[in-house]
Design a protein around this nucleic acid. Structure first.
Lengths: 151, 151
DNA sequence: ATATTTTAGTTACAATTGAAACCAACTGCA
DNA sequence: TGCAGTTGGTTTCAATTGTAACTAAAATAT
């Protein structure tokens, strides 16, 4: 194609990141889905609550980078399944206070190791030096995107 | 949370990749959308056709990592907008032969530089050494995931 | 040749998602 | 106090997407 801009999708960073992360997420998602009947959004909410409990839906949204509608729906389904419990914040009756139920913890304790194992299996393809670079680079890009998207 | 698996979402690789690539894609997508009325799938199809012309829908699907239904719909919309043209392969009447129209090339020639520029702006946060590592690492993970997902 | 299976692409229907409207509770300020 | 503007969360409706079924053409087998 003479005279046209040279964009090769296969080497285009945003595209590569997108495809890589999608195949990756879907691979894990399939496991959540089949074995535990959890969608990605549901699992993300649970993951956050497993790590810091008694937070509001808004805070779950912030920490998972999901929007509040998605969180609202995930919370509704998790409540229905009994994986989480909800009460109302005493200082602000709009806010909910969310935490994993005993049942939820049982799920969490099964899924979390699986997720970590999957991550390890992926990282096993890299040597220690590569892993350190990757962490560093992702951190940098993450920060860069954050400030970009805030504008 | 004593006695529970330690999964911190913020440092979990699949999660980081997912959030990073989503915010990244959306940032570019917004530009496609607003300025050129193109969805991400539509643009991806056009990007592939800009790079190698006269290929079938199946081949577009392969090269964009989208499924054939998504491609079919993107193609339908691009045809309706007049951005691409379609004929039938002489050696196999099932296959379509797709290419950008003159109109399509005009769009392509505007969007492609924008996309490349966005990529450059992002990469500008990294030094040359980091960029090389990133390319290498993504390539490795890409290959690793490909073989994983084929099983 | 003809029946069977596979492949390219589309269509139909259900499930998921996103945007905007909405409600209730809080904040700040006159 | 009371009223305008925010904020947390839900609901509604439309658009997007995924799955499965489908058609037509080609490849393979009988």
């Amino acid at each position: 194609m003479p005279g046209h801009a040279l964009l090769e999708l296969e080497t285009f960073l945003p595209y590569r990141l997108s495809v890589l992360s999608n195949t990756l997420s879907q691979a894990i998602a399939r496991v959540y889905e089949k074995r535990f009947n959890l969608s990605v959004t549901e699992w993300r909410a649970m993951a956050v609550l497993g790590h810091c409990s008694d937070i509001s839906a808004r805070e779950v949204a912030e920490r998972t980078a999901m929007d509040k509608v998605a969180v609202s729906r995930a919370v509704a389904r998790l409540l229905a399944k009994g994986h989480i419990e909800r009460s109302t914040a005493s200082h602000d009756k709009r806010q909910s206070v969310l935490r994993l139920s005993d049942e939820g913890w049982k799920i969490y304790d099964q899924v979390a190791p699986l997720a970590l194992e999957h991550e390890q299996r992926l990282l096993a393809h890299l040597d220690e030096e590569e892993r350190q670079w990757l962490t560093r680079i992702l951190e940098t890009l993450w920060q860069a995107e954050l400030v970009e998207s805030k504008r």
